[in-house]
Simulated assay, not measured.
Amino acid sequence: MAAANDESAARAREHLRGLVGAAEALGCYTVVPKHFRVLQRLADHGVFAAGAIVVGTHAFLGYQNLLGVRWADAGSTVDLDFADPGRNVSLALAPDARVDAHSAVDSLRMGFVPVKQGTRYVKPDEPDFDLDWLTVRTRQGDAPVRCEALNVWLQPLRFMELSLEAPVPAALMSSSAAVVVNLPRPEVYAVHKLLVLTERSDDQASKARKDLAQAAALLACFVERDPDALREVLHATRERGPAWRSGLDKGLRRLRGPYADVHRAIEALA
């Protein structure tokens, strides 16, 4: 029986390899091998089944396959960002299942070292290849939050809850395999990026420009394909309160100039 199961698994892997190879040949986005290795190990340990969400530039790049587009300037990223919404999703797991993101990272034996109270894993030999674990900032402030469900510490960030509500499943591929992860809804991610860039300090100008470029690309896509969904997210964001309205308006104003056509299209949605 074990031999039959092994043979069946080998056939499934070979079939998947053929599918993702065909998808890559057709122009689908694939994750660089070292990043995919991390994603696959976390998936194998049940981290995404437990509710963790891929955020940041890997989510943006993954939207290319989800939406059937290719970004003219997709940019590059050298880190991986994950977030947990703090919801109790234990019912989605087997009663005796153990989800341990820390052990998953450690088992890679890639040299990751936890810093910032475990909210970030760094590689001393690759200073920019970080794994960041994020969550929603509450009245408790910026102090790291222990996530027992994943066995990691999470760094709270302002506005993060927007990207963590009602995530969507998506497949991220390498040239020979694929993993199913959770991503923020793309129209929500776009609005979140408008909010995030207004929080950037002066020494994070390059990150703010990347935030703006990603937001503009997704906003332009939704203006054309699903303006009602975008209008709904913009309205819901404004309804969250004065700080949210102010941040959104500041972010939208930043579209003027470099992305004036997108700014005009957003104004026309109102």
Rank of each mutant, 00 (worst) to 15 (best):
L108C: 03
D211F: 05
L234K: 02
R11S: 11
V145Q: 15
R231T: 15
E199M: 10
L67D: 09
F129P: 00
L66M: 12
D261N: 11
L219V: 01
T77N: 06
V181R: 01
L26T: 10
L131T: 07
R17I: 00
L150V: 04
G51K: 05
D202Y: 09
A229M: 03
A220T: 10
R70M: 04
R225S: 11
E239D: 14
A23C: 12
L150T: 00
D125N: 12
D142L: 11
E24S: 12
T138W: 09
V69L: 07
P85E: 14
L19V: 15
A220P: 01
A83S: 12
F48P: 00
G51R: 02
G27L: 08
P114M: 08
N65G: 09
A208E: 02
R209T: 03
G68S: 09
W133D: 01
T77Q: 07
V145M: 10
P114A: 09
R185H: 13
L80G: 01
R87A: 15
R240Q: 15
V47D: 01
M1P: 08
V55A: 06
M1W: 09
K210V: 06
K207I: 06
V55D: 05
H45C: 13
Q40H: 13
R139Q: 13
R245M: 14
K116M: 11
R13T: 07
D79I: 06
H35T: 11
L67P: 01
S206I: 09
S246R: 13
W133I: 00
V179W: 06
Q40W: 07
A74N: 02
A260D: 14
G51W: 01
V78E: 13
Y121C: 04
R37D: 12
A2G: 15
N88H: 13
G51E: 00
L42I: 04
R209N: 10
V233F: 04
L252R: 10
L230M: 06
R146Y: 11
D211S: 05
G46D: 03
A101W: 01
Q140D: 15
W244S: 03
A265R: 14
H102R: 15
C147Y: 08
T237P: 07
P144C: 08
A25I: 01
P95L: 11
A229E: 10
A216R: 04
E267P: 00
T198D: 03
Q64S: 09
A10D: 14
A92E: 12
Y29P: 00
R120H: 04
V223H: 07
M110S: 12
V69R: 09
A205S: 12
L255C: 02
S174Q: 10
A104W: 08
A9I: 12
A190V: 06
M160Y: 03
Q117S: 15
H102E: 14
L19D: 09
P227A: 11
A97C: 11
I53H: 02
M173W: 03
A74S: 14
G18I: 00
A213S: 13
M110L: 15
P95R: 13
V99W: 03
K210I: 06
Q140C: 07
D226A: 14
A143S: 13
A49F: 02
L269M: 06
A74I: 01
D100V: 04
F36G: 00
V168L: 12
G141S: 10
